[in-house]
């Protein structure tokens, strides 16, 4: 039981802005071999690119059958975009990479609707990563987006956000 508790670790949180720039980088546990800040920047940019490519790698079978059938049955005079935009028939958006797992750690990516990405490095045993990420997003919405001195898409330097994250990720363990 005790060993299991120790296995559950949140290592690092990265936040990547819309353009692929690293805007937040914080390690919560030193047991993951440290990345230099330059490496983190490269990782953020690379992940952003790979994520974008992964979004476009979409097998045709994943498209909803209704849009396919309506597109094939209607003649070429109809506008295919009209049928796609009708309510209820919109295809589920491609999500890109969600989880990347190795023997030592798991990288979970959460992308907001505005394109900001939260990357959380955890141990593979860590449960409920989705809930953790949702809470981190909540903290971000509260203490970063509601801070009058924060400029969007710029590096995050908000004391209360740091304090909230440490309280949640380190204090709750």
């Amino acid at each position: 039981m005790l060993r299991k508790e120790q296995d559950r670790v949140v290592f690092t949180l990265l936040i990547i802005n819309k353009a692929g720039g690293l805007i937040y980088n914080r390690a919560f546990d030193s047991s993951l071999a440290g990345l230099s800040s330059n490496d983190s920047l490269i990782l953020a940019g690379t992940f952003h690119g790979v994520h974008a490519i992964a979004r476009n790698l979409c097998p045709p079978s994943a498209l909803p059958s209704s849009t396919l059938s309506s597109a094939s049955s209607t003649s070429f005079t109809s506008n295919p975009s009209a049928s796609a935009s009708a309510p209820g028939t919109r295809a589920t958006p491609a999500t890109g990479i969600q989880v990347l797992e190795t023997a030592r750690f798991r990288l979970t990516c959460f992308q907001t609707v505005t394109g900001t990405k939260f990357l959380l490095f955890t141990s593979p045993e860590q449960p409920n990563v989705d809930a953790i990420l949702r809470r981190v997003y909540e903290l971000y919405a509260d203490f970063v987006m509601k801070n009058p001195f924060y400029t969007t898409e710029m590096p995050v330097r908000c004391e209360k956000f740091d304090r909230g994250l440490v309280g949640f990720l380190v204090g709750a363990r």
């Binding site: 509260d142 203490f143 509601k146 801070n147 009058p148 001195f149 924060y150 330097r157 908000c158 004391e159 209360k160 956000f161």
Partner: peptide, 14 residues
């Protein structure tokens, strides 16, 4: 509640 003051304006209290 949601405001973090940047270091260069530490005297400011909203």
């Amino acid at each position: 509640a949601y405001i973090s003051i940047p270091k260069e304006m530490s005297q400011l209290n909203c």
